[in-house]
Design a protein around this nucleic acid. Structure first.
Lengths: 327, 327
DNA sequence: CGTTATGGGTAATACGTATTACGTTTTTCA
DNA sequence: TGAAAAACGTAATACGTATTACCCATAACG
């Protein structure tokens, strides 16, 4: 910057003003253009560290989320990065694998200095550090939030399956998770009770889904429809069912969540709920930047309702599926 | 830092020395411990901008890569981030969607100030900016590189299929890409010539694979084995073939690349080549950090050979698959 | 004509850290 | 005992930018 100042025969101050668009009424028009041209030709790039030090804006936001494994999560990562970049911000991702790694994920991001944070689920760190944050898929008083409305989606899934005649429902997904709770609510609303063995624990991978469905099918009776936590789990579950000799969807209906890019090409193609990652990413970015620009704003919670994508993994209730012996 | 200095009754200088482990012989043992304790209790975090400004080390590396869409790429992203974090660095990802977006991807990263760059393919920017870099899947004189050995993997794939009796080979993947070149080399080595229509263009998504296989099968003759650019493409291709009424692998054998987390649960499970993302990520990180620490080192190229994963998508050559009429 | 605005410009400073160059006192050791 | 080394410590400065507080000259205005 000093060099450009010397070449244009002005002070460093002048160059700073011009490059930040505050030259009006301070530096002559002609000189402004000269400076801009020189900066471009020598492709000058302001030193982000110095700028950040002086103005306490880093143009950087931390994104703290679970380790991405599926195409769906990959898409979210890229949407966040590109969306943030489009608004002049850099995304600093920090992934946690297990829940107790969260603290260090926060440390990595905070140690590097960020203007704000996008976080998956709430974590106590957020309260201690007083840093602008928006929380994804969780609501905490005092923080903005973006919530995929899984409750509504679960209701829609169960309504759909009920409409097809199903009454024997299974669930595969993380035990104790939010979606499992919604699943049970829907059972209750229909006057049904959870059947032990028809709910199987599975982290969000195809392998876990495979294992869970295998366990589920080991029982003497089985449900006619299984709701899966996400598409990754569902793909493993379908595989397990088919390998067990079941016809999907004729003998077993399945649904997923997310609308993973691959879920249209499983056999059969998966009926699922598009989480609308573009909307989610937009909502997260907008919520955070809005708060960065205007800190005093009242809390805001945005809800994005997953959109049903009906494909071929659900069929009308098929009586003989009641017991394995019937098949 | 000044505050800690005041509390410990030393100068800021002293605190700086102690916190950077250079207190020996300068600050009394007891005071060192006091300072460390105070820093911990008030959970002091050095200002990264100031530190970066002063010492011209940002502990930051830029990762410039194509937009991740599959689980495989998601894994790579997370491996790079966590691997870098484990060595004290922060990853700044910048994704490009189409090739001409590469420039701005570089700009985003360079504008934020990074110590080094991990880049997918070589790009002219790298030569202009004189910044330490390691290139993935491409070799450029003057730069370190990490190369997945797709040439060897392709040879192994074709040897395997040849061993099963196949001689009519198709290929689905980006036209003009490196892997297509290797595919043709392997054809030539066997005295075969490419059949127009048996090579179909497809970017790396299941949807593209589906479309490509659909086009391929529209011809009057079809290959008995199709090599796919990656698992995402292969999953779409399998789907297209099965929907067309072909039995996989009995009537059509397929292979993929990458060993995507989902590829073990397609129907049938995909025979593929594990790119060994852990090794790749390690190699990239190690290559770059080594150069950051010791700039004068000679160029280094690391090769990682994908490992065959034989599952069920390939079968012995089946004569009647020669023409669609036979089926 | 005196006053005020406007155009054009700079010097000085602060941001928070790491490092260099200096001190002073105490210990070691020949 | 005297000199050198070690222990303990600080003041000053530089990193590159943004901003404040100034300055002077000329134009506009009552």
């Amino acid at each position: 910057m000093e060099e450009i100042a010397a070449m244009a025969k002005v002070s460093q101050t002048g160059v700073s003003f011009v490059l930040n668009g505050k030259g009006a009424g301070r530096i002559a028009k002609a000189k402004q253009e000269l400076i801009l041209r020189l900066a471009r030709e020598h492709n000058y790039r302001p030193n982000a560290a110095a700028r950040g030090l002086r103005s306490r804006k880093r143009y950087t936001v931390g994104v703290i989320m679970p380790t991405p494994r599926s195409g769906f999560y990959a898409g979210l990562v890229s949407l966040l990065q590109t969306g943030l970049a489009a608004r002049g911000y850099m995304a600093l991702f920090s992934f946690w694998l297990v829940r107790d790694g969260i603290k260090s994920a926060y440390d990595a991001v905070l140690g590097h200095g960020v203007d704000g944070i996008i976080a998956w689920d709430y974590h106590a760190c957020l309260a201690n550090e007083k840093i602008p944050a928006v929380i994804f898929a969780d609501k905490q008083p005092g923080f903005d939030a973006v919530l995929p409305d899984f409750e509504a989606a679960m209701a829609e899934a169960m309504d759909y399956l009920s409409g097809l005649g199903h009454r024997d429902f299974g669930y595969i997904g993380p035990a104790g998770g939010e979606r499992q709770r919604f699943f049970r609510n829907e059972l209750r609303r229909r006057g049904l009770t959870p059947v032990p063995g028809w709910e199987q624990d599975a982290a969000g991978s195809p392998a876990a889904g495979f294992a869970a469905m295998t366990r589920l099918l080991a029982g003497s009776r089985r449900p006619s429809a299984v709701v899966c936590h996400n598409d990754a789990v569902a793909s493993g579950a379908i595989f397990a069912a088919v390998r067990r000799g079941l016809r999907v969807p004729e003998e077993l209906s399945l649904t997923g969540f997310d609308n993973d890019p691959g879920s249209a090409y499983t056999l059969p193609p998966l009926t699922t709920f598009d989480a609308q990652p573009e909307l989610l990413a937009d909502a997260l970015i907008d919520s955070l930047l809005r708060r960065l620009e205007e800190p005093g704003l009242p809390e805001r919670t945005l809800r994005v309702c997953p959109k049903a994508v009906r494909r071929e993994s659900c069929a009308a209730y098929f009586p003989s599926s009641q017991t394995l012996e019937d098949v």
